[in-house]
């Protein structure tokens, strides 16, 4: 399996990369770790005459954690996310989710930017970033703009990023309270049959904030405000958890594929949501 021919570029700064995208339009694509793009090119499902490798752009690297803000460069790998202790303290849900992505070899190379920008509903980081209410920074010929993760995904592989823009970083506020990323998959390395990211904070015995998002249960990640609302103000007891699960299930639209028929996926989604909420509550 060998891809079609292409010209290869490895710019050392962002403006050079954006210039290549502007010059070549639809014929150019940027590549981060390449572990989604290269398989598509090998299958000849993606034809990219001008391939722009981002590996030499230092501005896209690094994890910055200060008091009330976390910023992760787009080229930070899953392996680096898992290893970073400051990030683990600020948002432990990231390590929990990243450990469930693919396998060790893929995590050394796969990046957070590639994972969120790709637009594949099977990717785990988009739902996670919606749960964290993250913001994606994109740079294009007209400068930088920020797009909330909850407004970024339009349909499978269609996002709010324009073709001549490069996603450069994800940012969010450090989390407090309980967390869980729960994922059902057929085997290590598979995409989720269903996955859910949950954050829960308590004030005494009462839920003071909640955020629930889901992976691979529609053609985009799903953030469920209704599920979050079902928990906020509640005692987080069995009735409230069931109400949240029901609300979340009302927002998904899974498609039948090799991972199972629609009814099965809805069933698995219910199990995963309940586990994720209960685990987040136990840690809150």
């Amino acid at each position: 399996m060998i891809p079609g021919t292409f010209e290869y570029y490895r710019p050392s700064d962002l403006s050079e990369a954006i210039k290549l995208l502007t010059t070549h339009g639809d014929d150019a694509r940027v590549m981060a770790g390449g572990h989604s793009l290269i398989p598509m090119m090998k299958l000849r499902m993606a034809d990219i005459p001008h391939l722009v490798d981002l590996q030499d752009i230092d501005a896209l690297r690094g994890i910055e954690v200060d008091g009330d803000a976390v910023r992760i460069g787009a080229m930070v790998t899953q392996h680096e996310l898992i290893a970073d202790e400051a990030l683990f303290k600020a948002a432990p849900i990231i390590r929990e989710a990243a450990l469930q992505i693919a396998d060790p070899q893929v995590r050394y190379v796969g990046t957070v930017g590639g994972n969120v920008a790709n637009g594949d509903p099977g990717n785990d980081m988009p739902g996670l970033m919606q749960c964290l209410d993250a913001v994606f920074s994109v740079h294009g010929p007209d400068g930088e703009r920020d797009i909330p993760a909850r407004e970024f995904y339009e349909a499978a592989y269609f996002t709010a990023r324009e073709d001549d823009e490069v996603l450069t970083a994800v940012s969010f506020k450090p989390q407090s309270g309980g967390y869980a990323y729960e994922k059902q998959k057929r085997k290590i390395g598979d995409y989720a049959t269903a996955a859910s990211a949950v954050l829960i904070a308590k004030d005494g015995a009462t839920c003071s904030s909640a955020s629930i998002a889901m992976t691979n249960l529609s053609d985009t990640p799903i953030y469920s405000q209704a599920a979050s609302d079902a928990l906020i103000g509640s005692d987080l007891g069995p009735d409230a958890v069931s109400a949240a699960v029901d609300a979340a299930l009302g927002e998904i639209d899974p498609a039948e594929d090799g991972r199972g028929p629609v009814e099965f996926k809805k069933h698995v989604a219910g199990v995963i949501l309940r586990r994720a909420i209960e685990r987040a509550v136990s840690r809150a």
């Binding site: 290869y8 390449g34 572990h35 290269i38 398989p39 392996h79 396998d103 070899q105 050394y108 190379v109």
Partner: peptide, 24 residues
Amino acid sequence: TSHCGACTVDMDGKSVKSCTVFAA
């Protein structure tokens, strides 16, 4: 197809599947 790992090599201190890395 980057599943089996038979092509694993060490690249700059990381294990990678060399069927999913362009020589470039």
